[in-house]
Design a protein around this nucleic acid. Structure first.
Lengths: 230, 230
DNA sequence: ACCTGAACACCGTTCAAGT
DNA sequence: ACCTGAACACCGTTCAAGT
C-alpha cells in the first residue's frame, strides 16, 4: 500500500469534513487509512506538522492569478477567496488559525496580497502589516461562522446574555439579533469594505492626511467628525 | 480552606503567567491550590467553563468609562485597551480567543464599542459587525505578538521561508523583515487606524459613496470568481 | 459542602520487532 | 521503508467514600 504524505493529508481533510477537528486524533485518522496511529509518524514528525500540511492544502488556491481590476477589488477578491477556502472544509478556519509553520501556499498567497497593496501605494512594510490584519479579520469571522453553524439553536449569545442577566443597551440588543438574522456573507463583506475604504484613504497620497498619520490618538482636536453624532 | 470560584480563577491566572496555557491542566492547577484535579469540578462544570471565567477576568477593564473624545479616538482607545488587557497575562490572547461563552465583562465591553460606533453614525447592526471585526483584529494581532515573544529567535518566518525555498517578491521580503524589526505596538496602531479611517468614511453620510455602499463585490469585475465556485 | 483516591476512557508519541 | 503491537506518560472527567 505504501502511504504517501499527500494520502494522509487527503484523509485528514476527509475526516475533518465528516467528524470535525475535535474528533481528529492520530489513532482515528490512522484507522481511516487502515493503519495504526503510530504509523503516521513515518510521514509527519508530529500532529502539528500534519495539521500544518492540512492547513496549507486548504489555502492552496490563494495564489491563483487575480483579474486585472482596481486594487480595491483585488483586495476584496483575496478576502473572499480566503473565506471561501476556509469554509470549504469543516473547521477549516480553526485548522488554519492553529497553523504554526506557514506552508508554501500561505506564503504565496500573502505575497500576492502584499504586492496588491504595494501597487495601491502602501510601503512594503505596511503592506505586510495590512495583509496580516486582513488575515486576522477573515480568520476570526470564519471561525465564528463555522462555530455558529454547528451550534444548537438554543445555545446562542442572545440566550446566554439573558441568562447572565446583564443590562445591555437597546442598540446592543439589535446588534446581537443581527448576528443571527443576517447572512454571514453580508456581514463579512461589510467589514471587508470598511477595511478597503480605510486603505484607499491612507494609501493614496492625494487622499491622505485627513488625520495625523502618527502620534497620540487622544491629541486630536475634537469636532472634526462631530456632525455624524446623532 | 474552602476554595471559591474566584480563588480558582486567580490561581489559573497566576499559573498562566508562570507556565503558560499549554501547561495548564486541571491536575496541575489543582496542585497549585493544594488540591486534587478532580476537586476543581466542584467549582466549574469543566475546564472550558473555567477558562471562560479566566478569559472574562482578563478583559475586566474593557467597560471602564471612556474619555469624552471624538469617536475615532474612542475606538482606538478601546482597541488599545483590549490589546493591553490581553498582553497583561501570558497567553492571554489565546485564552480569550478560545472563549466559548462570553462573560459579563465581554458583553459590557462589546456593548460599549457598539454604542461608540452608533454615535459615529453606524446603524446598530453594522456597529455590531464592526465591533466583532475589531475584536478579531486585536485578537489575531495579539496572539501573534505573544507567540512571537515566546519563539526562539532562529525560528521565525524568514528562516522558514528560506528553508521552504519559495520564491517571494522583494516587497514581500521587506514586509517579512519588518515583522521582526518593527515595534508590534506600531504595527498594531497602523491597522487600527486603517480600520477607523474606513469607518469615518463609511459612517458619515457626507463622506460616503466613494464606492458603492452595498452590493455584490463580484459585480464590478466579471468572471473573477470562476476559480472559487466549486 | 468540599475534597480524596482511584478509576475510566481516552490522548500524542516512541520504539522494538516484524514484513 | 513501512507498519504492528505495545508501551509510556500523560489528559479531562467521574464518583464512591471520607471529613
Amino acid at each position: 500500500m505504501a502511504l504517501r504524505k499527500s494520502d494522509v493529508v487527503d484523509a485528514a481533510l476527509r475526516f475533518l469534513d465528516i467528524e470535525g477537528l475535535d474528533q481528529l486524533t492520530m489513532r482515528k485518522l490512522g484507522a481511516s487509512l487502515n493503519v495504526h496511529g503510530g504509523a503516521l509518524y513515518r510521514h509527519f514528525p508530529n500532529k502539528e506538522a500534519l495539521l500544518d500540511a492540512v492547513a496549507d492544502k486548504i489555502v492552496q488556491d490563494m495564489g491563483d492569478p487575480l483579474p486585472d481590476s482596481p486594487w480595491t477589488d483585488q483586495v476584496e477578491i483575496l478576502g473572499n477567496r480566503l473565506r471561501t477556502a476556509l469554509l470549504s472544509h469543516r473547521d477549516g478556519a480553526r485548522v488554519v488559525a492553529g497553523t504554526f509553520a506557514p506552508g508554501v501556499n500561505t506564503i504565496v498567497g500573502s505575497d500576492m496580497a502584499v504586492q496588491v497593496l504595494c501597487r495601491a501605494g502602501l510601503p512594503p512594510a505596511q503592506a505586510g502589516w495590512v495583509t496580516f490584519a486582513l488575515f486576522y479579520y477573515v480568520l476570526g469571522h470564519t471561525i465564528e461562522e463555522q462555530a455558529q453553524r454547528q451550534l444548537p439553536s438554543d445555545n446562542n449569545w442572545r440566550v446566554r446574555n439573558e441568562r447572565l442577566d446583564v443590562q445591555v443597551s437597546p442598540q446592543f440588543a439589535v446588534a446581537l439579533d443581527s448576528l443571527w438574522d443576517t447572512d454571514p456573507a453580508e456581514r463579512f463583506q461589510y467589514g471587508l469594505r470598511v477595511f478597503v475604504e480605510g486603505l484607499s484613504h491612507l494609501a493614496a497620497p492625494s487622499a491622505q492626511q485627513t488625520r495625523p498619520a502618527s502620534g497620540d490618538a487622544t491629541r486630536e482636536a475634537p469636532g472634526k467628525r462631530g456632525n455624524l453624532a446623532r
